[in-house]
Nucleic acid binder design. Structure first.
Lengths: 346, 346
DNA sequence: CTGAAAGCGCTTACAG
DNA sequence: CTGAAAGCGCTTACAG
């Protein structure tokens, strides 16, 4: 069954040429005439030859595989991210070696080690929680280009692509202000996290530049989950200032907030505007009443891949850090719309 | 920067042993004493040696990478599937090489070719639409174990793992019958597809074994989309037999059906039972009123990986076809419940 | 355009 | 336990 594999020598013999010539044909060199090339290709097909990339890599040529390591493939965001990356790496002639760590640092170490052993041209990493600069050090030292996405790794001398939480939140709140909302609550998220701080900063900035004073009482932190969203929304509804809109820490909180509103006979989107930060694509179609600020994962993936390719083509990895903000897109989902405060008053 | 990589020879010199010994240490052989092993490992660490798997593979050893090719990574179902596979391949010491085809046959060919060139121990393929036995022939001929999942490839002599559409639908309908429902509609799906036929067969079987005659008028085909679900549900509500429940072709149809019900002042889950076939995980949490028959993608992935490992360990690929049904799980989603017909009458 | 030769980094017998 | 040797399949100069 699994007989000895066909090699360049076999096909050289069969085609009556030297193995150098076969190699030239394989590499699409122009130094070989059409007749010869045709015959060689013919033989290759006949004998069912499979190029041995391990041998080729061993001899010399650079690798054409790019490693993609993500921390949670189960989350559509990262699947979309990977698909975006694939689009650009593929058309650049690279093949993508995708692995999932499930937030496990051990797994991440294993997977990256394995990719190194196989020889990769570069790595795009969405780091597991707790990743440190030390984890990336050996790669950088070996001159392997690395791009870190989604979460920054403090102190690591690698290119980094993260999204602009603050700007995105600011835009979303500005959108609500344009509709005439004045009393806008911030719902959900653990108050001691960096992302929370960034998003709240954007929230405050937007309101303050509209001349609205934000009291700390307008910010309702909670677990960044659906249940947390319910809690936060319930608290907000009980507040003396009658909010007409809310911006939610993430999509899960936004879902929960919608639940919470309905439980209090308020209709999200219809008499209360809700905007959520969106990490999960499906969310948009699932809750029509919800508008989202989206990170556009595919676009982010494409961008990250471009950063990596640039480094690969630059020969050596530049050990400099490029912090770059991904574009955030605000969109009302298909069936939904943003309620105006007039409706909210009714 | 990217200096000449450290090799076994370098570490042999530095550790004062022969390169055979280093190789032995690398391969965890018992033929080397503890002191020597410790010294070698020490040197390996000091010099930052990276094992060159390409050289090793070239020389002899089998591959330890398993290729996973899926047709749509954007769909959470396949991401979950891949995660399930990863769980078992990982603990068996394999590394997973995941690629996405996006339903493109060309892309699928490229990706599989590339994996072959890199040398893989086996392949799990969720085939793009239109994949034929011819596409798999070369792999089989080369003795590379292949397991096809989710969709069968007619005529291909490979192990296959597909889900039991008929049985799943039968179970779901039986569940509705137990609640006392008698007039149950079947909504959505293109009538000319194999899956549609299977699911309808299960639907009929369940009703008929309960002594209920199914008229063709109870089956409302439509596009397998959210829009299709709205259409189908609207048609069903207009039917002379007042249905109290529906089983939907898939999750998208079920979403649409819920929309359609609400548009007619019916409350899904509350006064009308809806069960959908579930392909997308997020669906479960998104529409609380919806119950689903789920394929358990992770479980299916684990099972497929086990099938592949068995073949790999069996030495040669057995060219026999094993058709195996994945377990279907019926579950009421967290917030939701199945309405009883009494409620539906109210 | 083609042939002979060397070498990529490893592993595998085979003698010591 | 260790050393010397051959070879995995390819590519790369280097002469013809």
């Amino acid at each position: 069954m699994s007989k000895r594999p066909v090699t360049v020598i076999d096909i050289a013999h069969a085609a009556g040429v030297s193995k150098s010539t076969v190699s030239l044909v394989l590499r699409n060199s122009t130094l070989v005439n059409e007749t010869t090339r045709a015959k060689v290709n013919e033989t290759i097909r006949e004998l069912g030859y499979v190029y041995n990339r391990n041998a080729a890599k061993l001899r010399g040529g650079g690798s054409e595989v790019i490693g993609i390591v993500v921390n949670d493939l189960t989350n559509s965001f990262f699947a979309e991210l990977a698909v975006g990356m694939d689009m650009v790496t593929q058309s650049a002639g690279f093949v993508q070696f995708l692995a999932n760590t499930g937030e496990s640092l051990d797994r991440q170490r294993e997977v990256i080690a394995s990719m190194r052993e196989h020889g990769m041209a570069g790595l795009i990493l969405s780091p597991a929680r707790g990743t440190t600069a030390a984890d990336l050090k050996p790669l950088v030292a070996a001159g392997i280009p690395v791009v870190v996405v989604v979460r920054a790794v403090p102190g690591a001398k690698v290119s980094t692509l993260i999204s602009d939480s603050e700007g995105g939140t600011r835009e979303a709140v500005a959108h609500l202000l344009e509709q005439g909302h004045r009393r806008i609550a911030f719902l959900g998220g653990f108050a001691d996290t960096a992302v929370f701080a960034e998003r709240v900063r954007g929230y405050r900035a937007a309101l303050e530049s509209a001349g609205i004073a934000v009291s700390d009482g307008w910010i309702f932190d909670s677990a960044p989950s659906r249940a947390g969203g319910i809690t936060a929304a319930t608290a907000a509804l009980a507040h003396a200032d009658h909010f007409t809109a809310a911006i939610c820490f993430n999509d899960a909180v936004a879902f929960g907030a919608c639940d919470g509103l309905r439980a209090h006979k308020r209709e999200p989107g219809l008499d209360f505007a809700v905007i959520g930060f969106d990490d999960v694509i499906e969310a948009k179609s699932a809750v029509p009443a919800l508008s989202t600020v989206s990170i556009d994962p595919q676009g982010m993936g494409r961008r990250a891949a471009q950063m990596l390719l640039k480094q690969i083509n630059a020969g050596q990895a530049e050990a400099e850090t490029i912090i770059s903000a991904a574009r955030l897109v605000l969109r009302d989902s298909s069936g939904g719309r943003i309620a105006t405060p007039k409706e909210a008053a009714a």
